[in-house]
Every structure is written in structure tokens, then in C-alpha cells.
């Protein structure tokens, strides 16, 4: 018996490095951030003033609002595109489907700084397309500005679509051909099949994908940083400039914003789970 006990202590010691890393770089920083958000700017007085500052300041509130809107809009667009595109995927032979998934997989790695750069040389002030459209005299694009809200949405949608396609595509495989046959045998039309069977079956994965995309966009930093720098008011850019810039260093306020950003994500996950439970109950 004693031998086994001794062995267990030895084994526990082997777990130590993992525990140290998790405490030092995962749990520790989270706790430090939450704690820090309840201090005043001097770092000594305990207060909830940082949160009050955020909710009273037009600047920070609009940053939060911008982030939420950009995340929601880009997630909605990407999920819609992915639902349609993934369905179209299933109409091709498995070899082509495979190729298409490869392309989605490939392009899902094209994000952050390189992606922003690519958009800058294509659609920026002196971008290839910008100049081309100007020469062709297409007024439609004359007042398009990449370094703005529309530009950000465009780039966000680009890195969200491949991910959305890869997440939604598998759930189409769950819709059996026999279901369609059964539905039409029982007198259902194509539309009623999709409304009563197809979409309800897809719904959990659509909602799940939506949450992932939303969270993905809320936390996105590199893309926005490269594209608009600090000229555009986004939550992630605000946090970065509060904790790591040379000019406006306010780590406590940054921590409070960080806590809010993390809470938004937890809220999104919670909402997702609620939806999932409701959907599943309906299915049963």
C-alpha cells in the first residue's frame, strides 16, 4: 500500500509543470485582470469607478457598440453566405466537395495582418481595384473607403466565411436523402421540407456557428489594428491602447474593459446554450 502512495506522490510531482503554467499564464492573468479592474488609477484604492467611467463615457460606450455591431453584422452575413454556399457544395461530386473544403481550409488561415495588407493593396487608397474602378469610371466604388466601417466589415466577413463554411458544411451531411423522399411521399413540398425538417435540423449548428463567429469578431485585434490603427473606435483597440501604448497608459481601465469584453463572450456562450437547450427540447 505504501508503495502505491509513494508512487502517487511521484506522479503528482510530474503534474507540477502543467499546474504552474496554467496558474501562471491562464488563471493568474485572468484573476489579476479582474482584481485590477476594481482599483483606481493609482492602483491602491479599491473602487468600482473604472466601470462607472466606462458606462458614463461616450467614447468607450461607442467603442463597445461598434464592436458589437461589427461582430453581429459580420456574423450574420457570414452565416447566411455559409448556409447557402455549404448547401451548394453538397450538389457537387465528392471530389469537388473535397477541393472546395480545401480552399475554405486554406483561406481560413489567411487572416490578421497579411489579410489586411492584401485588402490594402487591392482596395486601399492606391489599391489595384480602386485605381482600376476609377479608370473604368465606376462611380459605385468612388466613395468606398477601406479604412472605415464598411471596409472593416468587408475584411471581417472575409475571414469569417471560410470558418463558417467549414463549421456548417458537416451538418448538411446529417440531412438524409430518405427524409426528403419520406416528406414528399407524405405530400410535403420542397419548401415545407426545408421549413419543417431541414432548417430545424440545421438550426443547432447555425446557432453554434453564429456564436463562434461573434466571439471571433469581438476578440479580433490584428486585422483591425493593421487596417485602421487607432483611428477607429473598437473595444479591442481601446483595450490595447490602454494597457500597452506609450501615451494613454491606464491599466485599471483597460482591465475593466477586458472584463467587459470577456463577459460579452460568456454571455454569448450562455445565450447559445440556452438556445441549444430550447431547440433540442423541441426536437424531442
Amino acid at each position: 500500500m505504501r508503495k502505491i502512495k509513494k508512487q502517487k506522490i511521484y506522479l503528482l510531482a510530474l503534474l507540477l509543470p502543467f499546474i504552474i503554467f496554467v496558474i501562471g499564464f491562464e488563471i493568474g492573468p485572468l484573476v489579476a485582470m479582474i482584481k485590477n479592474s476594481f482599483y483606481a488609477d493609482d492602483g491602491i484604492t479599491v473602487t468600482i469607478n473604472q466601470y462607472i467611467t466606462i458606462f458614463k463615457s461616450k467614447f468607450y460606450l461607442s467603442g463597445i457598440k461598434n464592436s458589437l455591431i461589427i461582430s453581429l453584422v459580420s456574423a450574420v452575413i457570414s452565416v447566411t453566405v455559409a448556409v447557402i454556399a455549404a448547401y451548394s457544395f453538397t450538389k457537387f461530386s465528392s471530389k469537388i466537395q473535397n477541393r472546395l473544403l480545401m480552399i475554405a481550409n486554406m483561406t481560413s488561415n489567411f487572416e490578421g495582418i497579411p489579410l489586411s495588407f492584401s485588402y490594402i493593396i487591392l482596395l486601399g487608397n492606391n489599391g489595384l481595384f480602386t485605381l482600376l474602378f476609377a479608370q473604368l469610371g465606376w462611380d459605385l466604388f468612388a466613395d468606398f473607403n477601406l479604412y472605415s466601417w464598411t471596409g472593416l466589415i468587408l475584411v471581417y466577413v472575409y475571414f469569417q466565411i471560410p470558418l463558417a463554411v467549414m463549421l456548417i458544411y458537416p451538418s448538411y451531411q446529417g440531412i438524409k436523402k430518405q427524409w426528403k423522399e419520406a416528406s414528399s411521399l407524405l405530400g410535403g413540398s420542397k419548401a415545407s421540407f426545408w421549413f419543417r425538417i431541414g432548417i430545424p435540423v440545421l438550426l443547432p449548428s447555425i446557432v453554434g456557428t453564429f456564436t463562434i463567429l461573434f466571439a471571433n469578431a469581438m476578440g479580433a485585434y490584428a486585422t483591425a489594428y493593421a487596417l485602421v490603427g487607432s483611428n477607429y473606435n473598437l473595444m479591442s483597440l481601446q483595450i490595447a491602447s490602454l494597457v500597452a501604448s506609450d501615451v494613454t497608459l491606464k491599466p485599471q481601465l483597460g482591465s475593466a474593459l477586458g472584463v467587459l469584453l470577456a463577459s460579452t463572450m460568456i454571455l454569448a456562450m450562455w445565450f447559445n446554450e440556452r438556445m441549444m437547450r430550447r431547440i433540442r427540447r423541441d426536437l424531442r
Binding site: 491562464e26 493568474g28 492573468p29 485572468l30 484573476v31 489579476a32 485582470m33 485590477n36 466571439a215 469581438m218 476578440g219 479580433a220 485585434y221 479591442s236 483595450i239 490595447a240 494597457v243 500597452a244 491599466p251 483597460g254 482591465s255 477586458g258 469584453l261 470577456a262 463572450m265 460568456i266 456562450m269
Partner: peptide, 10 residues
């Protein structure tokens, strides 16, 4: 579930 930007703060 933690975006890098949040991790960096702590």
C-alpha cells in the same frame, strides 16, 4: 474562450 487581447491585459 479567451481572446488574446483579454489574456494580454492580465
Amino acid at each position: 474562450g479567451i481572446p488574446p487581447i483579454v489574456g494580454a491585459v492580465g
